[in-house]
Amino acid sequence: MGIVLGPNRYGKAETRVVRVRRDGDVHHIRDLNVGISLSGDMDEAHLTGDNAAVLPTDSQKNTVFAFAREHGIGEIEEFALLLARHFTGSQPTIRHARVEVEEYAWSRVPSSSGHSFVRSGTEVRTALVHSEGTGGAESVVSGLKDLVVLNSTGSEFHGFIQDEYTTLQPTRDRILATAVTARWRHRVPGGGGYGASFAAARRCLLEAFAETHSLSLQQTLYQMGRRVLEEREELCEVRLAMPNKHHFLVDLSPFGLDNDNEVFFAADRPYGLIEGTVLDDAAPAAPDAWN
């Protein structure tokens, strides 16, 4: 039996960087969480402990801070590409860079002096970039997570398999709630326009969720992904994960009360988890773009 070193990578995870841009008395906040993973000609670090080809993760962290100051932070996809291309372009042993960014949104407090902010809910904008440097393969995946949505009607669930362990009753009217994680792949990496693309894709997801009379969360997932691809030519693949945030009708009959779909118990676990991919089948596959 031969034992060899398989695929490997290393990097600095979860570098938190906050960039304040001062426009006179009015300030602007960008709040990011940056993860970096590098791979290349670095086997000896594993095999013999020779670190001659290794860029310290502390240097990677410092690069994030320096780039935030020198280049500012525009769209998070562009910032991720800037970092990825720097690492592959500046170090001959680094062949591949993976940069993942999460952005936490802040809103200005109304009637404030211009420098007071409140965190904008739980939703997080995301970007995942892979780059092999100038002339090499690249991919850009944008997205969001923890987008919490709910339809108080317009959702059914019936006609499913029933076996000896089934207790769930079919329903023609239920609450449908979920926390959407959605990611979409750009047809041309580095094409720009990421801010407008993100806003449009998010709008498509919300509109499809609201407008679909749902017979299953799977159906809703597909319609959401399909709407994004139908309207956004720059995108070619959408992947979604949507937990079913169950709302169970409470039996109020012991108290002499009726309950016509008005009072529910919101259960946090266990929950159904629906995952799926919607894609343009003519677009080139890029399975590594998502990892």
Rank of each mutant, 00 (worst) to 15 (best):
T171K: 12
E78Q: 15
V228S: 11
E237F: 04
G72F: 03
T122Y: 08
R119N: 07
V109W: 12
A179S: 15
Q219R: 13
K145Y: 09
H130Q: 10
H28M: 01
Y222V: 14
V263D: 04
L147K: 12
K245N: 09
R183W: 03
L217S: 06
N261I: 01
M242A: 14
Y194V: 05
A200K: 04
A241N: 07
D43Q: 14
L5G: 00
D25M: 04
L279S: 15
L273F: 14
D268A: 14
F67Q: 08
H186D: 03
A68R: 10
T178N: 12
P170V: 01
R185I: 09
D23A: 07
P7I: 07
G49A: 13
R187Y: 03
D260L: 13
V228R: 05
F209V: 12
M242P: 08
S116H: 13
E275Y: 02
F65I: 14
S152T: 12
D23Q: 10
L47T: 14
R174A: 12
E207G: 01
G159R: 06
D280V: 11
V263N: 01
D146M: 06
R183V: 05
A52Q: 08
T171C: 11
H71R: 15
S142P: 00
A127Q: 12
K61E: 04
S139G: 04
L82T: 02
T220S: 15
E234T: 08
G40N: 09
Q223M: 06
V180R: 07
A182I: 09
S214H: 00
R185Y: 12
I73C: 01
M224P: 12
A285C: 10
Y222A: 11
D50T: 02
R119L: 10
A66S: 05
T48S: 08
Y104M: 11
V101Y: 03
E234W: 07
F264R: 00
D281H: 07
R19S: 08
